[in-house]
Design a protein around this nucleic acid. Structure first.
Lengths: 351, 351
DNA sequence: TTGTATGCGTTATCAG
DNA sequence: CTGATAACGCATACAA
């Protein structure tokens, strides 16, 4: 008899060993019920008598018990965490988006797990591997370099929300901002002010939204009957320095232009400094428009006219959609339409 | 007999049920060894014959097996994740710091778990609760509103690295940037340029680094024999808008000053716009110095002179120190000394 | 309504 | 060196 240790007994003996750990068994014992009952109360997974419910609640409060998500994850096969793939956590734009996700998830039981792909398909792939190895319950991918096929494959295993591209697949929800329309609006705004020689500072052409913004630029020019001059289009890399270099290149190649459309605010700010250094005033000598509407852009000198890209809201919507997907519901988020925020960096072309 | 299912059998029977899950048992069976042996190979926790080692390696590769961190966490009591408490993930300064943490952790087995306290003690407390409930193996806290006592208590349960305050406790490592010296240097720089009426735009006084920066300001003035005028000191909230409001207030109260020291770059940029709106040019009419050296500050007009606060490096050091703490080693990170980055927003006081 | 027994995927402790 | 077997903390069929 003594050779056959009951599971109950052996468990209790190791309880003290767990460092500072009060678990469901402790609570159950303290409340005079079984662990199963405690679990049922915790998850509202079955009816329990009011008396026991009270006793358990008391025990939990008294012992300061907090369910262990790790164990819960193992048992239920869910971790209550959702993976978020961004490109770089230190970019102001992604900061807003992550903040939106954080805000939306705060009122749920889920926690976000942020990783950065650094604009590299391979790195991004590893990130997704890590996230899936950690058994996240869902995946939110911002733009990203992964192939559509890869994302589709992911979506077979777990719910996926992609922001920044259009893609249809089961288990996957795409939330795409209309970058084309944004680019078109920006260019149209300049054209409406009388500008005809409009330079464009683009992002990495391999990046979908950068390409879309450029398409919008071209479309607006064409609609206005303005020929698109290749010499006025220069590639940047979405950061300030590249915006500055772009205008230097423009000036060096002796291009004439009265306005510049930069594919994001960071490049626009860099361009502004470049123009300033070269003795050109914004907007007196050249009008400048950006894209993103970062908070800081409202405080540049002059305050930047730009296309409002609602990063915070998009993050929020992405998280909300993920929550719905997780709940088995079909998300139906309404994506805000692009709009121009007119400030002081653009003005009528002097006659 | 049939009523007593062996554990072996019952396990195998449920294997197919696990959706897409290839686990350690699958590998063990495929390699013709026990699960224990596979585990030993995975963790290099004991010597295993070369033959079996090879067989297991093959099986792992063939089956594409990836150990489940959740189960591992439950068994080992470690989750290979470390919690990071920031104030707001969308602030450019914290972005840099998080990036540093991410970079440093990338080469380890640990993943960061980011949460934002939003400058609120209570929120921050909840964040830490969440993190601990999720059983992070360590905690990195940036500045934060938590009491020293609370952090000390945390440190008893798990390794803690705090950035932005000085604190000594077992299991805790503090990495404090010298904000006082930074504030002193900034002010000294202005004094060296001949300025004597220097306004100060501070952060929330309840925030330790804000207070330190202000102390540095006062110390430099005193050292130069300049009386500290209360009217020249105004409180901001570390964002652009508050910097703008601060200069408005300064001008409204008819204070005379030839230089402004803003306790962070975001407020400095706001102040620059405020001055611009009021017809004052930087640096011709008033010199302006910030604090943080955000990348964007190098591109403001004019490029901002500022105190270099190495967020990226601090993040990296914090993560490195945590890794050392986790390894049982005593961290000994050398914190970079404050230094001024002189650009174009400050200049000699016109005579 | 409640308790018992078992499983989730790994690691760790023992025997051999 | 290797294999059973018992934890880890929680959830859930299955009985009662």
């Amino acid at each position: 008899m003594t050779e056959m240790p009951g599971p109950r007994k052996s468990r209790k003996s190791t309880l003290k060993a767990a460092p500072g750990g009060v678990n469901i068994d402790t609570v159950a014992e303290a409340a005079g019920v079984s662990a199963a009952t405690v679990s049922r109360i915790l998850n509202a997974t079955a009816a329990v008598s009011a008396a026991k419910k009270q006793a358990v609640a008391d025990a939990i409060a008294r012992l300061g018990f907090v369910p262990n998500p790790v164990a819960r994850g193992l048992a239920r096969g869910r971790t209550l965490s959702i993976g978020v793939v961004t490109q770089s956590i230190d970019s102001p734009f992604y900061g807003d988006a992550l903040r939106g996700i954080e805000d939306e998830l705060a009122s749920s039981d889920y926690s976000p797990l942020f990783v950065s792909g650094h604009w590299d398909a391979q790195t991004e792939g590893r990130c997704i591997e890590t996230l899936r190895a950690r058994r996240v319950d869902g995946l939110i991918v911002f733009t990203g370099r992964s192939s559509d096929a890869a994302l589709r494959t992911c979506a077979k295993a777990l719910p996926v929300v992609v922001v920044g591209r259009s893609l249809k697949a089961p288990g996957l929800f795409a939330l795409n901002f209309d970058n084309f329309e944004g680019g078109r609006l920006a260019t149209e705004h300049l054209i409406g002010l009388g500008h005809r020689r409009i330079a464009f500072i683009g992002g990495d052409p391999g990046h979908p939204d950068a390409a879309e913004r450029q398409r919008g630029y071209a479309a607006a020019l064409q609609a206005a009957g303005i020929a698109c001059e290749p010499g006025l289009v220069v590639a940047g890399r979405y950061h300030e320095e590249s915006g500055l270099q772009a205008v230097e290149q423009l000036l060096r190649s002796r291009q004439r232009f009265s306005a510049v459309f930069a594919a994001n605010d960071q490049m626009a700010v860099g361009a502004a400094l470049g123009l300033h250094r070269l003795g050109l005033a914004v907007p007196a000598d050249v009008s400048l428009i950006g894209f993103d509407d970062l908070v800081s852009s409202a405080f540049s000198i002059p305050p930047l006219t730009t296309v409002h890209y609602p990063g915070l809201k998009l993050g929020r919507l992405a998280a909300l959609s993920m929550l719905q997907l997780l709940r088995g519901a079909r998300p139906a988020a309404a994506i805000p339409a692009p709009r121009i925020v007119v400030r002081e960096s653009t003005r009528l072309l002097a006659a």
